[in-house]
Simulated assay, not measured.
Amino acid sequence: MLVATVFDDLDGDVTGTAVEVDLGTGMQRVITGESTGYPYPPTGTTMGIVDVATDATFRLAHHRMIDADEFGNWSTPYVAVSPDGTTVAFSSNFGGDAVDTYLISIPDVSEQ
């Protein structure tokens, strides 16, 4: 399985912020998108994660990136997830005059 973000297939039938694609069959399923009650294309400054087993969506943080023209690609909030899935790193100017890197610890919800 592959989960694509900000996905739009060629004929426009399947669009969403998170779309699951079965690499064996090519079947596509929207997890978050207009058809499931989420705006597409995404708006705002929210970053989240999706549990593909339950389709539950969790908000992680707001990146508050502004004025991309001044910082170019550096202020775009690209997200990197640690190999064990416990930490997320992202960059943002957070509305200021410098681009910084932020770390988020993801709690283990299975223990709650």
Rank of each mutant, 00 (worst) to 15 (best):
M1D: 13
M1K: 12
V3C: 15
V3N: 08
V3R: 02
A4R: 00
F7M: 03
D8L: 11
D9V: 05
D9Y: 03
L10R: 10
L10H: 03
G12R: 04
D13E: 14
V14E: 02
T15H: 02
T17P: 00
A18F: 08
V19H: 01
V19I: 04
V21I: 15
V21W: 01
L23P: 14
L23G: 05
G24Y: 01
G24M: 02
T25G: 04
T25D: 03
G26C: 08
Q28Y: 02
V30P: 05
T32Q: 06
G37R: 09
G37H: 06
Y38R: 07
Y40S: 03
P41Q: 10
P42L: 07
P42I: 13
T45M: 05
T46W: 01
M47Y: 00
I49F: 04
I49M: 11
D51K: 07
V52W: 02
V52Q: 05
V52M: 05
T54C: 04
D55P: 00
T57K: 09
F58W: 13
L60M: 13
H62T: 15
H63L: 06
I66G: 09
D67Q: 12
D67F: 04
A68S: 12
F71Y: 11
F71G: 09
N73A: 09
N73E: 07
W74T: 14
W74Q: 12
W74F: 07
S75Q: 03
T76F: 03
P77H: 02
P77Q: 02
V79E: 08
V79Q: 09
V81R: 02
V81S: 01
S82V: 11
P83D: 09
P83G: 05
T87H: 11
F90V: 14
S91N: 09
S91M: 06
S91K: 00
S92D: 06
S92N: 03
S92E: 07
F94P: 00
G95W: 04
G95T: 06
G96W: 12
A98T: 15
V99I: 15
V99R: 06
Y102G: 11
L103D: 04
I104P: 08
I106W: 13
P107L: 12
D108G: 08
S110N: 11
S110Y: 05
E111I: 13
E111T: 15
